[in-house]
Amino acid sequence: MELTPLFQWIDTQLISLVEWLGLPIWFAELLEMVLAAVAVLLMAFLIVLFLVWWERKLSGHFQQRLGPMRTGWHGWLQTIADGLKLFQKEDIIPTNVDRKVFFWAPVVCFASSYAAFAVIPWGEGVIPTDLNIGILYILSITTFVVISLLMAGWSSNNKYALLGGMRSAAQIVSYEVPLTLSVLGVIMMTQSLSMVAIVEAQESVFSWFIWRQPLGFAIYLVAAVAETNRAPFDIPEAEQELVAGFNIEYSGMKFAMFFLAEFLNLFLVSAIATTLFLGGWQGPFLPSWLWFILKTTFVIFVIIWFKWTYPRLRVDQLMEFCWKVLLPLAFLNLIISGFLFRG
């Protein structure tokens, strides 16, 4: 049950519609873009709905609890209920905040994670846009998250928030380096930055890059967890130290935006891991998009598993780990793959 024919059908319908209206043909392309953007947005909301529930259930069962049980079957409506609650909440803007920056921080945060979805290959032929610099685009657009967290931390006019913002800036900028280097290994082998090309380079199970780049995958996974500010690298919001870090003053929908972005980022890094190392949509029997979702969900499971097992690192240890352990390893990985797979 591939989705490509559906898209083609929508495409022809749109073109005929535009022709019937007597509009230029680029208008059809514009419409397609808007449609794709809306579809991705809806998908993003669905993903967050699922992920929040998934994490709560998993964390519950890791701790021999049940997690949400009351809303719907095993609490599957819980996220919607929480979302409705957040919608209703008063949007508090504290007196002494920098209003403009305070307002835009969550928007930037959400927008940057959302924008990165443009190049996620959901399945064979299911990709909003196949940029030829896809992976580079993702790595650069997600960097905006740092700015938003810094904005939030600074504008809140709260010392805990400031500490959280500073921590997150230091952390994300640092971990960007090993993350990019670990991705480089894959790019060297595929000779392409396009997400589709990378997936297509992993035809069979044995040609998945996780086998050819195990060290690269490990580095990527660790750096990705750090990038998403999740435990054991969740120092920017470190509840026991900074109460809630950068989002301490946020409430209502603004908080929900940060929350959305956090889970979108979680999905994003897992999707990239799937694309780069786990063969993307490739897999037998099942339709390609389902394979993609399954693999991504598995990576998310692993990341959640980390979170509910490990304690949190300290801020200086985090930096030390990045620059003294991960970075040399990433370079080592690069050198090894340069030797082993020279074209």
Binding site: F62, Q64, R65, L66, W305, W308, T309, Y310
Partner: peptide
Amino acid sequence: NLLIGLWVTLRHLFSKSITLQ
């Protein structure tokens, strides 16, 4: 030891919850 920790939590993931509803 990181892996041992993961193993312990995984074991609990598949054990019965003790929650009383």
